[in-house]
Design a protein around this nucleic acid. Structure first.
Lengths: 141, 141
DNA sequence: TCGAACCATCACATTGATGTGAAGGTCAAG
DNA sequence: CTTGACCTTCACATCAATGTGATGGTTCGA
């Protein structure tokens, strides 16, 4: 598929697909005429990249961890230098921290929403109650 | 405490503490001489802000969700407009997505590391084995 | 009273992820 | 053969978060 289709299917501006390639995150084939040529797997790959970018990882780091995430990981045994291992361990820990932070704050938001919404429900119930009482002739003043 | 101490205790440049204030994320008291004056609670607050920034949330959003995260949330019932509720629900969902993405990729990294490291252990064991065999006089060509 | 170590504001620079548009090549359809 | 919808590269603009430095006020101890 060409860049336009990949762009549509991933909701990613062409500009950024070229940018990700420039940053070494993806490597597209080229048609004889110079057009970029992507296969199906790029769809998930782009989505993964965008998710990680959105989660705060810079392209530099994404570039490093992406190769380790392919299914047949047999190939990558030899090129696992000690520095690479250290980087991966560090990023893994950083991601765990991020996850903890996001979970804490998301749960706090969820709890807040739960409180506010249940409060709304109670108020709505009270309003129904009051209107029922009013239609029965009573009023509280 | 003044800005220097808060900076040290949170590992955050003074420049950024002022920036966060400018963005409305925090509101510091002022001493008579104009110096910013922070109390203990700012330490956690700054750490929370930095965590969220690191997790990809922009200051604009952090500013919106922070007030909902304070412990005595009784005050915030009235100012919970429908738009605010919608924003919070949206951000909660976005955070859940981010969490999912981070968890998936972190686990993949962890699994990769596990594989590589266990491979290393096996190789080390094999090396020990070989050296023991060599010291016993045998060799495999 | 002087200097060091704080603090203040202001302003300009940088970096990474993006937006946008120009200038031009390719290709299928009319 | 031209038009339109793709594609290419290149370049400059923007935005948010951050770095850095200038200029000057406050406080405190020698």
């Amino acid at each position: 598929m060409r860049i336009g289709e990949l762009s549509e299917r991933t909701g990613t501006p062409r500009r950024l697909l070229r940018y990700y390639e420039e940053q070494g995150l993806i490597a597209a084939d080229r048609c004889p005429n110079g057009y970029r040529d992507y296969d199906e797997r790029f769809v998930d790959r782009i989505l993964q990249i965008r998710g990680l970018l959105d989660a705060g990882l810079p392209t530099r780091i994404i570039k490093q961890i992406l190769p380790c995430l392919d299914k047949p990981r047999i190939i990558h045994f030899s090129d696992a230098t000690p520095e690479m291992i250290a980087t991966l361990e560090h990023e893994r820990d950083r991601m765990t921290e991020r996850i903890g932070c996001l979970v804490r704050n998301r749960d706090a938001i969820a709890e807040y929403l739960e409180t506010v919404l249940s409060n709304d429900r109670a108020r709505a119930a009270a309003a129904r109650q009051a209107s029922a009482g009013a239609s029965a002739g009573a009023s509280e003043g």
